[in-house]
Write a protein that binds this DNA or RNA. Structure first.
Lengths: 270, 270
DNA sequence: TATTGTGAAATGGTTCACAGCG
DNA sequence: CGCTGTGAACCATTTCACAATA
């Protein structure tokens, strides 16, 4: 097992094969549920991520007593343009009122439903080093809904010790413990060399969604969803921008100042 | 100040305005430098992130004594398809040999150059909580090149205490310290409410690249580059997939015999 | 011959702009 | 009248497929 496959996210990145296509209901089937679930398949991954952002912004607005928002307001708060926001919302249905806007409560409800946040998702963290520790201590990640119910490590000194209230189990127990606690999301925070093996065990245990913090390209079967958070990549992308900026400055000077002659390190290529 | 603007990355997301377009040299100008720097501007952001991944894979290969790689080998190891890989590499130049492949050393060199990794990028971490601690202890992030040279927090009990070898300074000293130590990348690991204020100070201090771990949409001027790592969003996107999967199973059942015991944790035959 | 480098086609995502509607 | 919802235009990125070539 363990077919090769790139992981989503990180930055751009679009699924290798068919992911968010319109392969919805092959059979006409009698129009049933609001099609909300059929619809889900058609939402572009990028839009899904933005919906999560809108949800957070909306929650903030709700706390401040807002009853309705216009696409423009919400868009500004979320840092996107309003057309994109409306298109994103249209993927989940038509919950706005023309001439008025959206009811904050309704939107929150609908986005939560589409994102599957009405259900609890048990999370297991593997690798209780600096980062794993930090993650475990979040104690039920982002505003509940993602309770951390299992921790794993290889270090015998850690096994048995409770971190953030949960005792650390040995990596060999991943299959058993994950099954028992119905873990649906596995978080990998191990050193790079251990990541693939840990991933394999999680998959064995039936975990279908993995969040990978290890700087490693995981190979997983097709039915497993991997998202990665890659610090090195993030920094290097920023580094690229620093470099580009520096070049711009250097070049820009030339343009503004001197005339047509400018071949510092001449050498003609294509 | 502080114009509104969405931040890149996270997942899909494409720059609001013109970012990686082909707006290169507006004036024909005499063909000069290897165009390496002009080229930089034309590299799609998504490709930049992947280059960082290729770089890591290549380093691993180099350590194992590989002298050359074919696009196919490298692609598999990086989890992308070979056409994409070749296209990505073509953005930085033509360093391969037809019929043979690429010299590992050469590629490493060129990618490092494009990503600006030949220069050191001083990093400041703001917010020394669980996560900030973990980050500070990385001690010179991913394989050097990104030395952490400054730490900040508001907590008076923390100020002055060294973490990972670097003494924590007070947030009010961001401008001075960042200038002194020539910080080029700021990492925000504060609680959400503090993030925007911290961001503003970093910008004031001249920091042009920010990596934001706080679940907040930062508003920054156009010349500042923000990338974000958003745990909540990542988990919620995974949650979406769990939900989609569940629906698939429910719907699919009607077709593919729901006869036998369909297990608890997935493990679909497929 | 094997593999790169790249036009051109295909796909997917974003933005425009306006019809539709409360 | 104002704002949503969306078809259609536009743009970026990915993939195909093959000519170029060491």
């Amino acid at each position: 097992m363990a077919a090769q496959r790139g992981q989503r996210n990180g930055v751009g990145d679009t699924p290798p094969a068919p992911t968010a296509a319109e392969i919805t209901t092959p059979i006409p089937r009698v129009a049933e549920v609001p099609a909300a679930r059929d619809r889900a398949r058609a939402i572009p991954e990028a839009a899904v991520a933005r919906l999560a952002v809108y949800l957070r912004v909306l929650s903030g607005m709700q706390e401040q007593g807002a009853g309705t928002v216009s696409s423009e307001e919400l868009a500004v708060a979320a840092g996107v343009n309003s057309a994109k926001l409306r298109k994103d919302l249209s993927y989940i249905g038509s919950y706005g009122t023309r001439g008025v806007g959206y009811e904050v409560v309704v939107l929150i409800e609908e986005i939560e439903r589409i994102l599957g946040l009405t259900r609890k998702h048990s999370v297991a963290v593997v690798g209780i080093g600096n980062l794993g520790h930090a993650l475990a201590n979040y104690g039920g990640f982002p505003g509940r809904g993602f309770p951390v119910t299992a921790l794993f490590d290889v270090d015998p000194d850690l096994v048995g010790v409770p971190v953030g209230g949960i005792p650390v189990d040995h990596i060999d127990d991943i299959p058993r413990v994950c099954a028992e606690r119905e873990v649906s999301i596995g978080v990998i925070a191990t050193p790079p060399p251990a990541a693939q093996a840990v991933c394999d065990r999680l998959v064995e245990a039936g975990v279908q969604c993995i969040l990978n913090f290890a700087p490693v390209v995981l190979q997983v079967p097709d039915h497993v969803e991997v998202r990665k958070v890659d610090l090195a990549v993030e920094l290097q992308v920023l580094s690229f921008h620093v470099a580009r900026r520096a070049d711009d400055a250097a070049q820009g000077d030339g343009v503004a100042g001197m005339g047509p002659d400018l071949q510092v390190n001449g050498m003609v290529v294509s």
